[in-house]
Design a protein around this nucleic acid. Structure first.
Length: 639
DNA sequence: GCAAGGTC
């Protein structure tokens, strides 16, 4: 009885404390607290927890192990303007804690009709390593009165936040829960976030739930259907590795590749005609280009040509010299890294990310998964430049950057967690692709801190019997960043000197012809750009989706590193196009994104969106079954 | 055996 009373009193105290806290935070008052508040803070990854704790604790941090090896607990003392003096434990998760899956009766491929996966029950599962993290959260939550969510400030982060909340609240229902909003890990940003706590946004988290459930149901239903049906038609495909999958990101990615391939296949070359004027002066060749560039009618070109030849004297009508800059690169984010590596080093994005990961864990470079393309003022760029002066290859350049003072051409993007990719240690003993990638990162880093290249472009306009032609030359004045960034080319183009109103008879005036050429197949760098533009996948997943559709034999890479669809890829796109559903077009995913945004904005109800999306796709699924002959004939035709 | 999204 005594024990019970004590507990009730404790509970009552807690309740009144929490109420007070709520109203205080809302009103922003600054009343005194008599006792310390125990606060649990949870970030999305260990790095963030560590850095935030360091800032809030002003360097006085006690570290102890959590139950998972990667997620430490950082203990600090910190004063909050309304909570008062806090004893804070800052820990982290590793992204999502839970994953959706079907229950055992629907997990086996032959256990049910694929169609039933649209309505089958799904449950949240937690794998072993996440189970350890979950246990840490439960243990810590029991000792606290306040929980602050410090996950990344994006949609997925909000959802991860609610996973944390679910776990912590189950362990301690009396927790008062807040959300910190920050866009970078700097002293002012973190202190501001800590003193302007909000409530977590359930709507944003709900939107992610809808995406997760939808992706699982659609992915599983269509993948099983496509795989099993094709195996029936083509028993030789019965190898277990021959999965024919559908995914809301895979299909549009495939669509881009097929689209370009078809543009190329269906391309009809067009003949065109043009006029070139050539004149050699002071031993320098000058080739003037026609202002009309080219025309697609031979007769009209001939007419102009005749007119020009009638009175072929040229008059210099205009001379213009202007200063041109070639911009140094912006600090490197993941997408820039993937695209650069793919186009400049000819190493594919997936492999490059693997190498970057390795360089990161070896301490040679900063964290490679970042959306940030500006250096925070706190980052000691001088130090990182200094380290590179040891190099016999770019050491001198690094020294010059130091002498001039690092001057980054900052972009505008920032995730809240990581700086742009930059070297952190000098690495003279690397070899092979590791070495080439490290070198690219160093050169990009130093280039982004140097000055733009400067040149002067001179344009000479001439007129020959009322037709205009022009010539331009370039004189590079200062190479600056180009000296280190060997991947950018900018070359001088020498032209003769002319004077205003100067007259001359060209050495030759020629009518030329040619024909338009088909667009090239996509490069990986271009595909990543398309995916980014249409919102297919995220920075962290672009390379994975491309790799996935290679693995599925939907596309392949040509010897000159272009992406070409295989028969299966074209067949799938055609098959769905033929039965009237453009499953490979990015607009389906875009429509979902719009719905998700409406859920976040409170315009749409998540359950309604989920139900209507499921029923839309169920319709497509039923039609696929109904027209499966047509669908698979289109596929098989291309195999 | 299936998706996409986090992160180690």
């Amino acid at each position: 009885m005594k024990y019970l009373l004590k507990n009730i009193t404790k509970c009552l105290k807690q309740i009144s404390f929490c109420r007070r806290l709520c109203s205080d935070v809302k009103s922003g008052s600054d009343s005194q607290r008599s006792s310390m508040v125990n606060v649990l803070s949870v970030a999305e990854k260990n790095d963030v927890a560590k850095n935030v704790a360091n800032i809030l604790g002003a360097g006085a941090v006690r570290v102890r192990n959590g139950l998972s090896p990667y997620n430490k607990c950082y203990e600090i003392s910190v004063r909050h303007q309304t909570l008062g003096d806090c004893r804070m434990v800052m820990t982290s998760v590793c992204g999502h804690l839970f994953n959706y899956d079907f229950t055992s009766d629907h997990k086996k491929w032959w256990s049910c009709e694929p169609k039933s996966l649209f309505q089958a029950p799904i449950v949240q599962t937690c794998n072993d390593s996440n189970q350890r993290i979950k246990s840490t959260l439960e243990r810590e939550a029991k000792r606290c009165q306040v929980l602050i969510i410090w996950t990344d400030c994006d949609r997925e982060g909000e959802n991860i936040g609610f996973e944390v909340i679910t776990v912590c609240r189950a362990a301690n229902p009396r927790l008062d829960i807040f959300r910190a909003h920050f866009s970078e890990i700097t002293v002012p940003a973190i202190n501001r976030a800590f003193n302007a706590l909000n409530r977590p946004n359930k709507k944003v988290s709900d939107a992610v739930d809808v995406r997760q459930k939808l992706d699982l149901r659609l992915g599983a239903a269509f993948t099983r259907f496509l795989t099993l049906e094709l195996q029936q038609m083509r028993p030789q495909m019965k190898d277990n590795k021959n999965i024919v999958s559908y995914g809301s990101c895979q299909f549009p990615t495939l669509g881009f590749v097929v689209d370009r391939f078809k543009q190329r296949e269906n391309f009809v070359p067009q003949k065109f005609w043009s006029i070139d004027v050539h004149y050699k002066k002071d031993g320098i060749n000058a080739n003037f280009n026609w202002k009309r560039v080219r025309v697609f009618c031979e007769q009209s070109c001939l007419a102009v040509m005749t007119k020009v030849m009638d009175s072929p004297e040229a008059v210099v009508t205009h001379i213009n010299t202007r200063r041109r800059s070639k911009w140094r690169p912006q600090p490197m984010d993941t997408v820039t890294f993937e695209r650069s590596v793919s186009s400049k080093l000819k190493i594919n994005a997936k492999k490059a990310m693997g190498i970057a990961e390795k360089l990161y864990t070896s301490g040679f470079i900063s964290y490679p998964r970042t959306e940030t393309n500006k250096f925070a003022p706190e980052l000691n760029l001088t130090n990182y430049c200094q380290i590179q002066t040891a190099s016999p290859i770019w050491g001198q350049f690094a020294q010059r950057v130091l002498t001039n003072g690092p001057n980054p051409r900052n972009g505008t993007k920032s995730d809240q967690a990581h700086p742009p990719i930059h070297p952190t240690k000098y690495a003279p003993n690397l070899s092979g692709d590791d070495k080439r990638i490290y070198e690219l990162i160093v050169r990009h880093f130093l280039a982004s801190l140097d000055k733009d290249a400067v040149g002067y472009e001179t344009t000479i306009d001439i007129c020959i019997n009322e037709e205009f032609f022009s010539l331009s030359g370039l004189r590079i004045e200062e190479k600056n960043y180009l000296e280190i960034y060997i991947y950018d080319k900018w070359t001088d183009k020498e032209i003769p000197r002319f004077n205003q109103n100067e007259r001359f008879i060209p050495d030759s005036i020629m009518m030329t012809d040619g024909q338009t050429t088909a667009p090239e197949l996509l490069t990986e760098a271009q595909l990543i750009a398309l995916m980014e533009k249409h919102g297919i996948g995220t920075d962290a997943t672009h390379a994975e989706h491309i790799e996935k559709i290679k693995e599925r034999h939907y596309i392949t890479e040509t010897p000159d590193r272009r992406l070409k669809p295989e028969g299966l890829g074209v067949g799938l796109v055609d098959g769905y196009d033929e039965i009237g559903y453009q499953m490979s077009k990015p607009n389906l995913r875009a429509a979902l994104e719009k719905d998700l945004k409406d859920i976040c904005d409170g315009i749409k109800n998540p359950d309604v969106v989920l139900m209507s999306q499921i029923s839309e796709y169920e319709k497509v699924f039923n039609e696929s079954i109904k027209h499966k002959t047509k669908l698979f004939e289109a596929v098989v035709r291309k195999l």
